[in-house]
Design a binder for these strands. Sequence first.
DNA 1: AACACTCGTTGCGCCAGCGCAAGTTCAGGC
DNA 2: GCCTGAACTTGCGCTGGCGCAACGAGTGTT
Lengths: 238, 238
Amino acid sequence: MAKIDSSLIADLPLFAGLSTADLDAILSEARSVRVAKNTAVFEQGEEAHSFFVLLYGHVRASKTTPAGEQIVVRYVATGETFGVAKAIGLQHYPATAVAVDDSIILAWPSGIWPRLVERFPALAANTLQTVGARLQETHTRVVEMSTEQVEKRIAHALLRLVNQSGRKVDHGVEIDFPISRQDIAQMTGTTLHTVSRTLSAWESRGLVESSRQKIIVREPHKLFMLAEEKLEGSSIKP
Amino acid sequence: MAKIDSSLIADLPLFAGLSTADLDAILSEARSVRVAKNTAVFEQGEEAHSFFVLLYGHVRASKTTPAGEQIVVRYVATGETFGVAKAIGLQHYPATAVAVDDSIILAWPSGIWPRLVERFPALAANTLQTVGARLQETHTRVVEMSTEQVEKRIAHALLRLVNQSGRKVDHGVEIDFPISRQDIAQMTGTTLHTVSRTLSAWESRGLVESSRQKIIVREPHKLFMLAEEKLEGSSIKP
DNA sequence: AACACTCGTTGCGCCAGCGCAAGTTCAGGC
DNA sequence: GCCTGAACTTGCGCTGGCGCAACGAGTGTT
């Protein structure tokens, strides 16, 4: 197996406070895996055999309801941890993880987690912080879904994607991985129809520019103002 | 200060795997506080000076948006931990905690958390599990808010309250603390009007019995069926 | 006992956004 | 270069449930 250099992971939050020697010890237990676009890393309900760090690419975590509806839990960005089910006491993955782009991940067998934590207690503290941050984000999402109209929710979701995975391009910031109207609908609790209409309206106002699986935010600041606007505002009118 | 017996907390998830001696050491750093009904334990935005365990009573955690709207994050049940902001890397409480009944809590200064974790690594692991479980619950809530109609959301919320804090009474299960229509609205992302109408409808069907700040579920099973019912468009796809 | 206040109920009108349907565009495979 | 399917767009009608408003009922206070 290819040797992974510890400098690749030294700056990740999960490994904060660990020495290079520690990192090498931890890395020696990992295997790196290349995952092709649109391939599942793991499926909801499957036994949580491994936990992962995303080295390169983008991964979408989504949940499917018994009725068959899907919602997107989050997009995993480069450097983030995912699939930590076992560490939080779950035997099975609560969501499905799919690479939305060709990706490279590090994988550790879940079984070694207790040993790792015992040897490197910082891992538990770091994971606690990460999971805590995700809890906060999810609460924010609940608040938004409870109190905001669809247009603002979509604006907030887009801004979050831009901040997390934006790439500067000619006349704006592009979301750095393929994302469909349906995906955004599943992040905001609406339908792909409403997302499509909203993006069309924004496009005609010059706020965004979008095509198949691709969105460029031309005016992040204006989008932000729309998202934060307290007053009853610009509804979509022809 | 009154001595707290370790048997009071020995069975709590937070302290799993610790010896009686450990418990006594941890307890020696705590102070117990009596909190009167409708009194805040801490306020959103305040510096996270302490973390808590609820020994007796019920506490509501809620968030207020910049626009002034409130949503209920959760109800803390007896034995649960709350206010762990510092442990997950926050300097300030992300929500407000209010006792909804006369309550007794244990409080530890946040500052001692790192020392405690160093000395008792199980604390970090246990907290990680607790926070992880709360993340799962919050995800469930996002899924429900994304995919279910208001009536089902209310049904699910009620059932959760009953499971967590139900008390068997004459002809059903009563939620064991005062809870208003407004509270339920803030848990389910709707308005107190809709909650009121829904409860009225259920009451006339004999499912529940309710009055001011009080709800008795008469037919938990029927409510459950209502919550799970899959009534979709029904037509078979070609 | 009278008061003030909070909590709950219910009728009514309205509209954001969903569901359906029909059409268009585009990417990748053969 | 053609074909197929997935992604996107858009018009239209309908409705769940929100906002408003007015009232009723219980609770704690003086």
